[in-house]
Amino acid sequence: MRLCAAAFIFAALGALPVLAAEIPAADRRSGYSFMSSDSKAMQDDDTANPGMLAVLEGETLWQTKQGDAGKACADCHGDAATSMKGVAARYPAFDAALGRPVDLEQRINICRRDHQQASPFPNESHELLALATYVAQQSRGQPITTGDDSALAPFIAKGRELFMQRQGQLNLACTNCHDDNWDKHLAGSAVTQGQPTGYPIYRLEWQAMGSLQRRIRGCMTGVRAQAFDFGSPEMVALELYLMSRAHGMPLETPAVRP
């Protein structure tokens, strides 16, 4: 009987997730630092950075009247350089009306619905990425502050839990690579820490702009898991955890990544 209980306890302990060591603040590194000098130069030079095309397109959209209300973003928010400075650096942010966090793309679509009476832009659409990139670029160089709002705490905890949870046919958690093996290489490519410092990014592999959600879905498919849907609570929780994990790191949008 005692043996049985001992075996049960042992089995229960064995089932507990082994919590990986989180990266100390001083050791955090942007994906930028893992890149080749060519890719770094592409990000650093606004005339060579393909993400700047999205910024320009976003700037036009910012000033274009949309929807049944016939209002442009600028009609309420004015000059984005002032009104949007630091905003992307604190997203995902808690939405009191919804009682949950929303990410920057969701915030843009909520604004379109409520204030412009316009239909939402589809996930990963050119327009949504362009507006998000334009808004985020206003925070370029600003430290990430996501998570300062205490209302986010339970959602960050949920995101952390998902980050630590093994998943998919390959049975790997985000943490197994991005906390424990970030200085190693997966088939020749730097693993990196998964710090989301430059989204939306121009990714050379995609030959296009893309969101953090698209990037997370790529990793989930890589471990042969069923990727979370765009905009799902789980996806936003993961984004939120990742951004809070990068608290204090400067935003780089529009970043270039391999």
Binding site: V18, Q167, G168, Q169, L170, N171, N176, R224, Q226
Partner: peptide
């Protein structure tokens, strides 16, 4: 138990496995 080596011949005890797998 904490290895990152996947179990190549196992189908149980996995979470959120993609449809194709």
């Amino acid at each position: 138990s904490d290895t990152i080596m996947p179990s190549y011949y196992r189908v149980d005890g996995l979470t959120r496995v993609g449809r194709n797998w």
